[in-house]
Structures are given as structure tokens and as C-alpha cells.
Design a protein around this nucleic acid. Structure first.
Length: 276
DNA sequence: CGGGACGCCTGTGAGC
DNA sequence: TGCTCACAGGCGTCCC
């Protein structure tokens, strides 16, 4: 599932290749989640700027003379972006959006169709502003400290797992990395986040950064759908300690990994290594 | 108003 | 073997 590492792998794979390229054509499939929000023709000849990531979104600035704006991309849960620098293969049934540029053909493939591509006049104009408004801190932002995480947790009653998934204190973790970070921090995912001490918040933030950077270094996780911009799979899934390992021994203590449902989502944890 | 439930989607695999 | 059905989950929206 595209979480922060997968989105960042995608952004890194595209940024240098697309910077300065010009849009030649755009094809919108019949089943984008939301309408693009702009006439396709108006994108022609616009120049692509520097791709930036915010949370699990990628912002692609576009400009032509005095006209400017950009496309906000989200990969949903099964989306991937592929850049075909030479002749692309025929479009498949899950290819919902295509941007043909002087640097190649960029395609959004998304079987479950939770992904999105949206035009916005600016990053701080709607609809981008609205979508990004509620996002928490970037996990690698040095200004985001364990103290800030601790202060955020104090305001909330939900479990720490739910808060990590909600992404309004810190962004980037989906189900896999939330489970893995909590495992590495030794924190039971069901713990009310209000009750976490500053010391445990320090361990959690360290663990989150560790898990996300390891995943990034391994090209993300490919459980099923995720691919990098060349179609390659990620490698982190083999390093997961708890995610998807229900009933298998904890790699540290041998206790069978447990699965529970939290807010309709599977949570995996070691009942011995992770405490409340 | 916080937080949990639900809906959006479709491919996959377990189970009958 | 072939069918049904639960499940996967990011995130917007709704409701308690």
C-alpha cells in the first residue's frame, strides 16, 4: 500500500526526469475517482516544475507564461505511477490517467481506484489546500520533536495506532509502518495515546523514522500492487516483523504474533514485546 | 467536536 | 472445479 516511503520512492524516481519537461497531451480515463478539475487542453505546453511530497500526496507544479498551477496526485491504496521514457505499451484497463510529456509518458495505474489526480491553481488554493489542511507534521522534519508528538498525543483519546493512521499529528504511516513502528518502539497499539510518556514518544518517533527510512532505502513495500516508476517491486515487505505475520513467532521472543481489529483495520503486534 | 463506522473499489484466495 | 464471500485499506463523509 502506498504509504510515505512508496510515495517518496515514486517522487524521487520522477523528479529529475520530469523537471523542465513539457506537457504534450493528457488522457483522462472514464473512471478517475474525482474529475480532474481542469480542461485537458489547457495543460498542453505547460512546463513541469519540481515535484514535492506532502504526506502521501505528490504536488506537480505546472507553468506556462503567466498561467500556473499544478496537479496533486494521490496513489490511494493500489495506485502506482510509471514513466515510460520510450514508446509506452497499450493502455490497460486500470490505467486511469496519462500525461504525455517531452520526457516520456506518465501513467497512473490503480486497480482499486482510490487514487486521485486533481488540478489546483496553487498548493495553497482549493482543492489542494483543503486536502492538505488537516495533515500533521512530516516525520523527518527536524522541527517535529518527540516533545511535539507527546503534546499532540496528550490532546487525543484514541489509541496510538488510530492516531498514527489518522495522520493529523504526524503523517506518513499507513497500516504497515504504523504496526512496524509500534513494534520497534515496544508499544501496544491499543494504548490510549494520552497515556504515552515522553520517553515512549521519543522511542516511537525514533522507531517511526527508522522504519520509514529503511523502507525508503529498500524501495518501499510491494504487497501486491505497488511498483516504482520503472515497474520494479519494493523490498521492505520481507523485513516486516509483525505486519501480515499473525500466528508466526515474534522475531525477538518467539511469542505468536497477534492480530486484532482496530477501527475495522487489522493491527499486528507481539503481545509480549509490546506493552501498554 | 472527537472518534468510530461506513462507503468507495476490485483482485485475491479461503472455504464450501 | 467453480462459486461465493470476506478481506485488503487511504481517506472523505456521516453520525453518535
Amino acid at each position: 500500500m502506498p504509504e510515505l516511503p512508496e510515495v517518496e520512492v515514486t517522487r524521487i524516481g520522477l523528479a529529475d526526469r520530469l523537471r523542465g519537461a513539457r506537457v504534450r497531451a493528457v488522457h483522462v480515463g472514464a473512471s478517475l475517482r474525482w474529475p480532474l478539475g481542469v480542461a485537458v487542453r489547457s495543460l498542453h505546453d505547460m512546463e513541469i516544475g519540481d515535484l514535492v511530497r506532502r504526506g502521501k500526496y505528490i504536488w506537480m507544479p505546472l507553468a506556462a507564461g503567466r498561467r500556473s498551477g499544478g496537479l496533486l496526485w494521490h496513489l490511494g491504496m493500489s495506485g502506482s505511477l510509471r514513466l515510460h521514457e520510450h514508446a509506452p505499451p497499450p493502455r490497460g484497463r486500470h490505467d486511469h490517467f496519462e500525461l504525455v510529456s517531452s520526457a516520456g509518458t506518465l501513467r497512473l495505474t490503480d486497480p482499486r481506484r482510490f487514487g486521485a489526480v486533481l488540478w489546483s491553481d496553487a498548493l495553497d488554493a482549493d482543492p489542494a489546500r483543503k486536502l492538505l489542511a488537516g495533515l500533521g507534521a512530516e516525520p523527518f522534519d527536524p522541527r517535529f520533536t518527540a516533545r511535539a508528538l507527546h503534546a499532540g498525543c496528550k490532546q487525543r483519546r484514541a489509541s496510538i495506532k488510530a492516531v498514527l493512521l489518522a495522520g493529523d499529528i504526524v503523517v506518513g504511516a499507513g497500516n504497515i509502518y504504523a504496526c512496524e513502528a509500534l513494534y520497534r518502539a515496544g508499544i501496544d497499539p491499543r494504548t490510549r495515546c494520552q497515556r504515552l510518556s515522553l520517553a515512549r514518544c521519543e522511542r516511537l518517533l525514533d522507531a517511526l523514522r527508522e522504519v520509514l527510512s529503511r523502507a525508503l532505502a529498500q524501495g518501499g513495500s510491494t504487497l501486491r500492487d505497488f511498483r516504482d516508476v520503472h515497474g520494479g517491486a519494493g523490498g521492505f515487505q520481507a523485513s516486516a516483523c509483525v505486519y501480515g505475520r499473525e500466528g508466526q513467532p515474534c522475531v525477538h521472543c518467539g511469542t505468536p504474533v497477534r492480530r486484532v481489529l482496530q477501527a475495522q483495520r487489522s493491527t499486528f503486534f507481539c503481545p509480549r514485546c509490546q506493552t501498554r
